[in-house]
Amino acid sequence: MTDPNLSAISGRHRQIPAILLRRARELRQRQTPAEQSLWECLRASRLYGYKFRRQHNIDRFIADFYCHEAGLVVEVDGTIHDRQQEKDAARDAWMESVGLQVLRVTNQQVQEDLEGVLVVIAERLRTSSPGPFSSQEKGR
């Protein structure tokens, strides 16, 4: 995704308040077991060559996982999200308004069906951008 407005809020040269930087660092150090499992599959461009960032600042929010190239935010929700559905919906609506797509999965889904979660993420990557899928990988 090459939208210059999106790059201003989520790209390499964006301005991030110090408090959000500290919070993202804390979240990276205290990942849930589900986040750790998913990160092992997404890190180092392991999923079809797409680069993901974890606990990535996007404007005033921190995304669990973010792929800038595809404009995809992946959120891994624990039980706290049952109590903040309105807040999450407003956050998702804002992200979608700036051109991002948001995929929410639960801790339980990641823990019980990691392969299925990866399939859904891969489908979103394929439909959101031309991406680096090689002809060899497209058949998988």
Rank of each mutant, 00 (worst) to 15 (best):
A44T: 10
S7P: 00
D3M: 02
E115Y: 10
T127L: 13
R53N: 14
E69Y: 02
S128M: 09
K138C: 10
R14E: 07
G78W: 00
A8H: 11
Q136W: 12
T32I: 05
N57L: 01
D88C: 04
A8I: 05
A34C: 06
V73P: 06
R54G: 02
P17I: 09
E40A: 13
E40K: 11
R30F: 11
A70H: 00
D64A: 08
V119S: 11
L118H: 09
Y66W: 08
R60Y: 06
Q85K: 14
Q108D: 15
A34D: 03
G139Q: 14
K51C: 07
G11V: 03
C67S: 06
G78R: 04
E75D: 10
Q36M: 13
S7Q: 15
L27T: 07
R140H: 10
E40W: 10
T106V: 07
S97T: 00
E75L: 05
V73R: 04
L27K: 11
M1F: 09
S129A: 13
D3A: 07
D113E: 09
Q85D: 08
L6D: 05
V117Y: 02
P17L: 12
Q31W: 00
G116N: 08
D3Y: 00
R30G: 11
E86M: 05
I62S: 06
S97D: 04
I80S: 15
R91A: 08
S7K: 13
E69W: 01
Q36D: 13
L100E: 01
C67M: 07
F52Q: 01
S7E: 15
F52P: 02
V117D: 04
L21G: 15
M1Y: 06
Q55C: 07
Y48W: 04
V120W: 07
E115K: 11
G99Q: 09
L125G: 05
S7A: 12
L103M: 15
K138Q: 14
P132K: 10
D92M: 01
A63E: 03
R22V: 11
P33Q: 05
I58W: 02
A44C: 10
Q111Y: 06
I16F: 04
S7L: 15
A8F: 02
V105Q: 04
V73E: 06
L20Y: 05
G131A: 03
Q36E: 15
D92C: 01
E40S: 07
Q15M: 10
H68R: 11
R140V: 14
A70M: 00
A24F: 02
E137P: 00
H81L: 03
A44M: 09
S134I: 03
R23C: 09
A63T: 06
P4M: 07
Q31I: 00
D92W: 00
Q84T: 13
N57V: 15
L6N: 01
F133D: 04
S10D: 08
Q84E: 12
T106C: 04
E69R: 05
A122I: 03
A90N: 13
W94L: 01
A34V: 02
E123H: 10
C67A: 09
E69M: 07
R25M: 12
G116M: 03
S7C: 12
A70W: 00
V73M: 08
Q29T: 12
R12S: 13
T106I: 08
A63L: 05
E75Q: 13
S134V: 08
S134Y: 08
Q109T: 06
I16K: 09
P17S: 11
G78K: 06
L47G: 05
Q15H: 13
